[in-house]
Write a protein that binds this DNA or RNA. Structure first.
Lengths: 215, 215
DNA sequence: GTCTATAGCAAGATAGAC
DNA sequence: GTCTATCTTGCTATAGAC
């Protein structure tokens, strides 16, 4: 579950590994900043926003709580970065997965790719994304407002995908595109509450949702 | 969303209204206790467990925080009562709704009744149930342990229902009963995060889930 | 950049008056 | 039963040394 964001000027498309050799050797402050973000994402995911203190984060980074303020202006700003990265990452993962199928791919395959990418990012790839999903509802309103645009951007992918699917008669009969979107994402996001990475098999949920909602 | 539990010796089956005339005029302490539980359920639902202080609860009841300790030993015990009532209530609602169909009812109708009862209880009927769903993941481990049996009891209903459905070939093709259970309950529980009681129509989600998972 | 030290505040909880 | 008053603890955040 450990992950480090090595963000070069701009991370675009999918990069297979967070690669060791980036443009420039990162400055020390940047390393600390990334460590803090990584630890914060992990703790926000595991415990929640309010339940995670800056002392907790500092302790895992190997730093006193006060030192975090050299890198972030407040807990809220730290959380804003974590949660923003979380949406961006799942957004990129889903967009890339669907795009990788090429323009002529059947709707069922596109939906399966989107479901798979969302779930994989949420459960396995990114503590940032899971932190976003688990914490967003409990975060202060000012933070919600900051994130709303990025969230809408991500939602738009799904809306378009399912509208296309509905138009192509690729959804199971009697299923509305918008309600399907909410149901699918609900089933996926809620898996955070029950999925056991040891015994679990994300593929089963993917297969079941595809079987249920597409034809 | 306001609700008061008027629990006579035992609440069994479904009672249409929480009826004004109960067995005995309730004592004053009982009235306060119920008010506290109602307010706590409402705030836990709206804000979350950690985000709700005893001062908040007291203020809405018209009482100082310290006075709550006459009725409850701790915040955790208060939350334990709220969350336990929450599962019990959705358990009763689903069990009654399915039972009301009679023994010969088709599986599709039984599943629809269960989905409908769960969703109605969660979104409309009971702040206790929605408080449970929203707070459980963030509550202290000792509280989780206290609730685990009641949760398993409720889960068992769904497991049985979907196993029966699978045996009767009433599930859509390619769908496993256990995964369907997790997907359906995930989609339902997550609706707390997006459902708007003003413009919303729970029926659409019910219809979509039935269409997706049954045949 | 990170530390120590601490300000300032809000939380859960308790004691005793009424 | 509820209040006032307060204890203790833990939090976010700041100031200044190093």
């Amino acid at each position: 579950m450990a992950e480090t964001i090595t963000r070069s000027p701009r991370t675009r498309g999918l990069r297979t590994r967070p690669s060791a050799a980036e443009d420039r050797p990162p400055k020390r402050a940047e390393v600390s900043r990334q460590q803090i973000l990584d630890v914060a994402a992990s703790l926000f995911r595991a415990r929640g926003y309010t339940e995670t203190s800056l002392r907790d984060i500092g302790a895992q980074v190997g730093m006193k709580a006060g030192s975090l303020y050299y890198h972030f202006a407040s807990k809220e700003e730290l959380a804003a970065d974590v949660l923003r990265i979380g949406v961006e990452r799942v957004h990129e993962a889903v967009a890339s997965a669907v795009a990788a199928l090429g323009p002529g791919a059947p709707m069922k395959a596109r939906i399966e790719a989107a479901i798979s990418a969302h779930l994989e990012t949420l459960l396995v790839e990114s503590d940032y994304t899971s932190a976003h999903i688990r914490c967003f509802p409990y975060v202060p309103p000012s933070l919600k407002a900051q994130l709303s645009q990025a969230r809408r951007d991500y939602e738009a992918i799904w809306r378009r995908l399912l509208d296309e699917a509905a138009a192509a008669k690729a959804l199971a009969p009697g299923i509305d595109a918008e309600v399907a979107r909410l149901a699918i994402l609900g089933a996926l996001n809620w898996s955070l509450e029950w999925f056991d990475p040891v015994r679990g098999r994300p593929e089963e949920l993917i297969r079941t949702l595809v079987a249920a909602f597409t034809r």
